[in-house]
Nucleic acid binder design. Sequence first.
DNA 1: TCTGGTATCGATACCGGTACCGATACCAGT
DNA 2: ACTGGTATCGGTACCGGTATCGATACCAGA
Lengths: 317, 317
Amino acid sequence: MTASRALRGAADVSEANIEKVLRAAEEIGYVTNHLATSLSSQTTNLIGVVVPSMSNVVFAEVLAGISDAIQQSGKQPVFGISNYNAEVEQDIIRDMLSWRPSGMIVTGLEQSEQSRKLLAGAGIPVAQIMDIDGEAIDINVGLSHADAGRDMACALMKLGRSKFAYIGSALNKDVRARKRMEGFRAELEKGGLSLVTSRIDDEFSSLPLGRALTAELLQSGVDVDCIYYSNDDMAAGGLFATMAAGIQVPQRLLLAGFNGLEFLEGLPVRLATARSPRRQIGKEVIRILLEAIKHPLAPEQRRLVFHPEIDLGDSSF
Amino acid sequence: MTASRALRGAADVSEANIEKVLRAAEEIGYVTNHLATSLSSQTTNLIGVVVPSMSNVVFAEVLAGISDAIQQSGKQPVFGISNYNAEVEQDIIRDMLSWRPSGMIVTGLEQSEQSRKLLAGAGIPVAQIMDIDGEAIDINVGLSHADAGRDMACALMKLGRSKFAYIGSALNKDVRARKRMEGFRAELEKGGLSLVTSRIDDEFSSLPLGRALTAELLQSGVDVDCIYYSNDDMAAGGLFATMAAGIQVPQRLLLAGFNGLEFLEGLPVRLATARSPRRQIGKEVIRILLEAIKHPLAPEQRRLVFHPEIDLGDSSF
DNA sequence: TCTGGTATCGATACCGGTACCGATACCAGT
DNA sequence: ACTGGTATCGGTACCGGTATCGATACCAGA
C-alpha cells in the first residue's frame, strides 16, 4: 500500500519512503498496470472516439483538436474508424464500451438502433459531433449541414448566379454531404430556381474524382454558371477541369466547396467555401465532455452549435 | 464459470446452458469487462500504434492499412499521435505499455533512449515502420529515404537537369524528409553537381507553404531547371507558384516531390514523385507483428524493405 | 503519567473476469 | 455391481492494483 501511494503521489507517505519506492521502481523498470488500476478503481482515463475515416483531412483535424485539448486532462483518447459503416461502428462502440471508458465521442447523429442503446445505457457522457440536424443522445457539438447548404445557395444567388449544378460523391455514406446538398437544393427552390444538372458518384470524394466528374459535366455542354460541390477536394478537382477546358473561374463559372481546407489557399483561384470549425469542434467537445464526466450537465450546456462562415474567395465580386 | 465459458464460446458447455446464458446476458445488457478479462488472462488484444501526425495523409493511409489488415485478427489497434515530438512520443509509449498491449508499432527509428529501453523491455514484439536507415529494436518495415533521395537525384540527372534547388520544411522534426534531402544531395555530388539554392522553413509542409517558398525562390532570380521538394504537398504548391509566374512545368522547370499521393493525378501537370507504399507498409507490418506475437521470428523475417517506384509523370520525356 | 491528535503504515477485501482442477452424472463394457 | 471414460459443471485461487480502516509511533498538553 505504501508503494502504491508513493507511486501515485498520494499523501500520507514519508519523504524517505517515497524516495525508496521511486528508486526501486526505476531499478526494476516498473510500469503501472493500467488494467489493474482501472479494474480496481472502477474508473478509466479512456475517452472513446469514433470517426468514419482518417484519410479525410477533416476528421484528421478533429482528432488533432481532440488530442490537443485532452493533453492536460490526464484522459487518453482511443480512436476507432468506422469506414462510414454503421455495423462496423456498432462493433467499435461495443468494443470500446467493454473497456469502460469514462466518455464517448461519436461522429454524426445516425447510429444504428443498437449503437444508440449501447451508448445510452453505458452510464457515461456521450457526445455526438459534427452534425446537429437530428436528435442527440446526450451531448451534441457541431453545425447544421442543411443550413450550410442553404447559406451557400443563398450567397451564390445573391452574386447573381442562376444556373446551378451539383457535383458530389458517396452521398449514401456521407450523410452530412447529403444534408448540405438537400439544404442547397431547398434554398434554390425557395429562390424559384433548381439544379440544372448534377453528377454523383459512389466513390469517396477526392480531387481526381472532382476533376473527372466536372470534366464530364463540362463536356456534356449543359449551360451552368455555378457548381456546388460536396466538399473542397471535389471543388479543387473541378477547378483543374475548368483550367484544362479553358474556362474562366469564377467569372464564367463559379465553383463552391465546403470545409475551408488550408490547401485552398495555395490554389491558382480562391474558390468559394464555408469554413467548418473542425479543430474547434474537437476542442469544445472535449471541454464539455470533461465537465460532464465531473458532474451532470444542464440540457443547454450539452449542446454547442457552430455557424460556418462563408468565404467567397475570388468569387466575392 | 459456466457463464464465462458460454459467453466466450468455449467448449464443454451444453447447448441448453449456452442458450440460457446468452439470453440472460441479452436481458441485462451485459457487456464484457475487458479490464477484468485482460487482467485475468494476462493478455490483451491491443496493438499500440504511434505516428507523428494524422493531418498528414501519409500516416492516415498507413493507419488505414493497419486498420484493414487487423480486422480479422481479433486484435484492436490503439493510436497515438506524437506531433513529431520525442518526449510526447515517450509519454505515449509509456502509457500504452501500461495497458499491456500484445504488440507495438512506432514510426521511424529515432526514439528517445528511454523509449527504446521501454519498448525493448516490454517483452512484446515491437515494430518500427516507414524508415530503415538505422538500427531497429526488433521488427522493421519500411524504405530507405536516403535511397529515395538518391534515386530521384539520379533519375533527374539522367533527364539532363543540372541546376538543382531544394525546397523543404520542418526538417528538424521530419527526419525522413531530411534523409531524403541528404541522399539527394549526396547523389548530386557524386554526379559532380550540387544544389544551386534551397529554401527550408520551420513550419510543417503544406501546399500553401510550398507555393510561398517557390514563389520566393523564383523571384530571387536564381537560375534553376529542377526543384526537389520535401514531399508532394510542397511540390504541388510549387506548381501553382510556377503557374502564377508563367513558367512552363516541366519543360523549363521540373518539379519533383515524394509520396505519390492520389491528388497529384488531378493536378494540371503530373509532377515527378516516388510512390511510398503506405497502405502496404501498414498491411505488412500487421502481418509480421501478428506472426511475431504467436512465435519468435528469425532475424530475416523481422525486416521488410520496400523500394519506392519513381514516377516521372509528365517529366518523363 | 495519561490522553488525544497527527503522521505514517499495512492487512484485508474487493474489482470482474479466467485458469486450473476436482466433482458430478451418466453410460458402456465386463 | 463395478470400473473407467466422457461430458459438463462449479469452487477456488489469482491477475495487480486500490479503498478502507485499523494499528502503530510519536509528541504535546493536561
